[in-house]
């Protein structure tokens, strides 16, 4: 542990209102839920001195996600483990379960929360792409009230979010799914498990009887400063028949939409090429079905 623990006082609110009061009154507050990201930052000594707001002490927060009439609500303490093990959720939103399995190890999956994954704003998040592919909506609460933001509009730059210092993400809402969508999730990591992605595609496609693309979602990790929903490439594909030619066009379009970099895990060239391959793999797998 390279961080100096006395630099991180902890406040334990007992209600959401109290937590929102704290956020409104004090500066430099970091909400603490699973702590699996904070733990890494503290261990490496890169976590700025701040006051931790312990969400575990809030009685109103239930850990279990709420699932009724096809609506799924993930609470501030809902973990990946919930999405892996609740069979109703696994059936309704399979990408969540697949993504949850890809994250680190069981111990982390049992501790880490979906909202924490959103709030950490890592471009390499494994959970956020699945949420974004399902058109997730965020509920942000503050002392002054509540507002909703679509997840795919939440990020504005590297670690930049549409989130005020006095706001807390209190819910992720997934709307009920129409039938007829096909899902795709492929994480390209540095090894099979326990890896950070080099690129990742969470895709969904809805084809009509005439093989025309009614609607599509293409969400990528690790090829932009934040989790990227490739809306331009989606619009190239939407309302057009799925053909080899249109797949070529999409493969071309995605190159203008992503902005990958060279880092210690991979190269820009590789990320560009494989991102194209993922789009092709996803669309080709729907070509003949």
């Amino acid at each position: 542990m390279r961080s100096y623990l006395p630099d991180y006082p902890v406040i334990n609110p007992t209600s959401l209102d109290e937590a929102l009061e704290v956020l409104a009154a004090k500066s430099n507050i970091k909400p603490l839920a699973g702590g699996t990201d904070i733990m890494v930052y503290m261990d490496t000594g890169v976590f700025p001195a701040s006051t931790l707001l312990n969400l575990y002490s809030i009685q109103d927060f239930s850990k279990t996600p709420e699932f009724s009439d096809g609506h799924l609500k993930l609470n501030p303490l809902s973990t990946y483990q919930h999405a892996r093990t609740d069979q109703a959720i696994v059936n309704a939103f399979p990408l969540l379960a697949i993504a949850a399995k890809e994250i680190s190890v069981l111990a982390v999956q049992s501790r880490a929360t979906w909202i924490g994954n959103v709030a950490n704003a890592s471009p390499a998040a494994d959970g956020v792409p699945a949420l974004m592919a399902y058109d997730a909506m965020l509920k942000l609460s503050s002392k002054d009230g509540q507002r909703e933001v679509p997840l795919h509009q939440f990020y504005q730059g590297y670690k930049q979010m549409d989130l005020q210092p006095n706001e807390l993400i209190t819910e992720i809402q997934l709307p009920p799914l129409d039938p007829g969508w096909k899902d795709y999730y492929r994480k390209v990591g540095t090894r099979r498990f326990q890896a950070i992605s080099k690129t990742l595609l969470a895709g969904r496609i809805k084809l009509n009887e005439g093989r025309v693309i009614e609607d599509i979602r293409l969400v990528f990790a690790s090829v932009a400063p934040y989790t990227l929903r490739a809306v331009q490439t989606e619009s190239v594909l939407r309302s057009r028949p799925l053909t080899p030619e249109i797949i070529d066009e999409a493969a071309q379009a995605i190159q203008d939409e992503i902005s990958p970099i060279d880092d210690i895990r991979s190269t820009e060239t590789y990320r560009r090429q494989v991102t194209t391959n993922l789009i092709r793999d996803f669309l080709n797998s729907n070509l003949t079905k």
Partner: peptide, 16 residues
């Protein structure tokens, strides 16, 4: 060594 963390120095796991 720039990748001096378990997360970034990749050894194979049993799955590999």
């Amino acid at each position: 060594m720039a990748n001096n963390q378990y997360t970034n120095y990749i050894i194979p796991t049993t799955a590999d």
